[in-house]
Design a protein around this nucleic acid. Structure first.
Lengths: 332, 332
DNA sequence: CTGAAAGCGCTTACAG
DNA sequence: CTGAAAGCGCTTACAG
């Protein structure tokens, strides 16, 4: 079961490796006789020939991999989230369609620019998909590699060569969340977000929501949470109950789910006493004792889009956003 | 920002590339003067030298990647499960500790042995970690590659060269689930499983549970579900209610969570009317309106173990199992 | 102590 | 229509 090479085929057929290489890669294809071509193809098949990708990459100087950079965040918070799995699926779809492998790299909390750039430099990378928030100096460092980079769910807004952004319509999502709550008759609204400063996903969701509320002539209350997970939502419910509001928008489904369970334990009825809406439409929001109203985003599409962008990239930065829509369930 | 090569360093320092290569790789290291070594190291550093991994792999004929094969199952069922993300984390830990990259490949539903083997043949693979149930002919096909393979959560029990098994103590988990329910005073027990035929994870969980019940002198009822997800659990609850049982063991947390919500909607009180225990201890089982009692397994450890096994492999097949323990929460 | 040379498996002008 | 040869960036006997 030794690796079979071009040479083996060439020997078998009695031609040069040049000819074999050309035929197998459809180069100068017109110049070879049909018979010869079939002959080579047949032998290659019979021998189970498979090109050595490392050699190919070396010879062509062409990259054959797409790197996926994943934030490490706090262990557990990220990893619990099927979201990333979907995203990787999408990236995989895009990459495999073009014959590229995906190679995954987690970014450590204390990752240095040098280490990361060194890592990238050694591989034959076509481009890099970076997911989530990542420090600016890492982005700048990676940019020195002079290869296209797709930043998914990142709002740093660099206007640089090779830097591309792929986002969800987070602001619009916040906007329709507000409108929906108002339409359902909730008037005293509150938003639970992890951030009200720029360059984060949560900020845009917050901003859209605020806009929606104010456009209707109302005002919104604000709760800033430290993380948007279930536990935080559960713990914050006491506060929410005491604020005298009747509708809450959470910037993530996990947060909303925790809030609902917390409210339940305090005897607050959702959706009658209080309406709740989340964001993401993760499967868990549907599979709940009280299915969650939420803003849906197509995560797989986002992953595919990231690869598309890298592949067809204009060297100057681009911006793309995937759409969102409201999914009405039992919590509003 | 062009790639810098050994040649660049050699030119700069004024030595041969052989020398540079030796120094950088700590080969024949005694034979070079300390001064020369420092000199080379300094220039390499200054130039941001990073070895081309493809060239290295070609020259040494040494693999530098670990492949991870992921089942595709039905879209959504797998992907929803953070379980796989943890596993990949563990695999990543093990691989990176040894300077190996991980390269991910999803197995399509209609994957052919040829395609998969061809894929593997072209890369410089150190070994393969395959996750979950995978068809026997794929395993046999991969085995022809003559490289170590770790099968995680797979019970096919081939006694073959290069085939290693990494499992959870599924049977023992089922056993302690049964004992726990009995200790809590539940006597009429039922197991919900997707399989009672060998070579599946669920079979062993089922078998352990059955053993536990019978050892105590009782008998168990059986429900075979088509998949162990939330919806199935929810839908089956009507049946469960009508069976006159007071304790249920579900072979997955998702299934248990669905069952609990289904029972709730039918007015059945958990844990007073009926005790429920799951398996896996996914985060969602803790983050629930009624936290789930379940069997915990260390998935990250399992991933690390898989890589360890491949790395230190004896060529003959091995078997390893990670331990489990019971987590008591509110449903029993 | 150091380097020239062959080789890993492939591609690609270029010559015939 | 086909092949010899150089080259991609590295490693490794081997010779001096």
């Amino acid at each position: 079961m030794n690796k079979v090479t071009l040479k083996d085929i060439a020997n078998e057929v009695g031609v040069s490796i040049t000819t074999v290489s050309n035929v197998l890669n459809n180069k100068n294809i017109t110049s070879y006789s049909e018979k010869r071509k079939q002959q080579i193809l047949k032998i290659a098949e019979a021998l189970n020939y498979e090109p050595n990708l490392a050699a190919k990459a070396l010879a062509t100087q062409q990259p054959n991999m797409m790197a996926v950079l994943l934030p490490h965040y706090t262990y557990g918070s990220l990893q619990e989230c099927p979201f990333y799995f979907y995203l990787i699926s999408g990236i995989k779809n895009g990459a495999h369609a073009r014959g590229l492998d995906i190679i995954i790299r987690f970014i450590k909390a204390n990752e240095t620019v040098e280490a990361l750039v060194a890592w990238a430099r050694g591989r034959c990378l076509h481009g890099i998909v970076s997911v989530g928030e990542i420090s600016k100096c890492l982005i700048l460092g990676l940019n020195k590699l002079n290869m296209p980079i797709a930043l998914v769910d990142n709002y740093t807004a660099f206007k640089l060569k090779n830097i591309h952004y792929i986002n969800t319509m987070d602001e619009y999502g916040g906007l329709i969340a507000a409108r929906h709550l108002l339409e359902q008759g909730y008037k005293h609204l509150c938003i639970l977000t992890s951030s009200i400063t720029e360059e984060t996903v949560d900020y845009y969701r917050y901003r859209g929501f605020k806009k929606g509320v104010q456009q209707a002539g109302y005002e919104e209350s604000l709760i800033v949470v430290s993380t948007t997970n279930y536990q935080e939502g559960f713990d914050i419910s006491y506060e929410v109950k005491s604020m005298g509001i009747d509708g809450a928008f959470c910037t993530s489904d996990s947060l909303a789910l925790g809030l609902i369970d917390g409210l339940r334990s305090l005897g607050v009825q959702v959706p009658t006493d209080l309406g709740v809406i989340g964001f993401d439409n993760m499967s868990r929001s549907r599979e709940n004792w009280l299915p969650l109203t939420t803003i849906n985003q197509n995560v797989i599409k986002k992953g595919e889009l990231a690869v598309d962008t890298l592949y067809n990239h204009e060297s100057w930065g681009s911006q793309a956003k995937v759409s969102v829509n409201l999914i009405k369930r039992a919590t509003t």
